[in-house]
Amino acid sequence: MMLAPATGLLGVFIVIPMLLTIWLSFQNWSTQTGFETATFVGVQNFIDIFANNSVGRDFKAALVNTAIYTVLSVLIILPLSVMLGLLVHQKIAPGGVFLRTVLFSTYMVPMIAVALVFSKLYSPTEGPLNQILGWVGIPPQTWLSAPQTALVSIVILNVWQQVGYFTVLAVAGLTQIPESLYEAAKIDGANPVQRFFSITLPMLSNTLLFSAVICIINAVQVFEPVALITQGGPVNATNVLTFHIRRVGIERAQGGLGSAMAVTLMLALVVAIALLFAFARSREMKNS
């Protein structure tokens, strides 16, 4: 009885929209018309989004782009956040708190401001990044202007903005590690590298698992930099799933197809997170 209000709210705002999206993924429906106009088409929408026509090619490309973006973001952000966390947490040199403030401030900058600045930084002819590279003899890079480099450029932007947040999480994890463990390891003659791999990393595993889950969810939901800077281009190189679903479901009003894409994205995310937990559990069992 006491849980009824909370359960009711969950049902109205989370469960019902999810069930509605799943139901719509089996319908042919224009988002501009009422639900009563939806017509059942079975799994046709799912067949279409994996077909070898423009609908299928665009969706598969967006799925691959999202996967690449997510993997690169996680692989760069997590090690970097631990490294920066160690720098912030250490007490040998001063400035840790200042560094933490600077790092976290990037997370608080609104994406519109980040997008404006990075689109100018990345300008191939007049951008400061290419000018700086030119001073050290590196030829100008194409950044957002070529399909080979555009997605990586968006990943760099994401890393720049998110790494401060994950550094704070890493620091929180580091503060939980008892100092006595390091003292004991030092007495046993362990060097800093051995102490990192034998104490720090294992003790950070729960923090890193949480960080990985959040990082994956954030990366899969990437939308703003694509919508603000590249519009999915060039040649679909930065067309990620959330942006593509918006294009199909809202701009083109193809609600059934858009819902099928959203359901596939949700399933992919569930599978990715489940695999991550399974991997963490197997490691835990192996260690114990």
Binding site: P124, T142, L144, S145, A146, Q231, P234
Partner: peptide, 8 residues
């Protein structure tokens, strides 16, 4: 040069 072609 396609690198000079981005526009909105």
């Amino acid at each position: 040069d396609p690198a000079m072609a981005t526009a909105d």
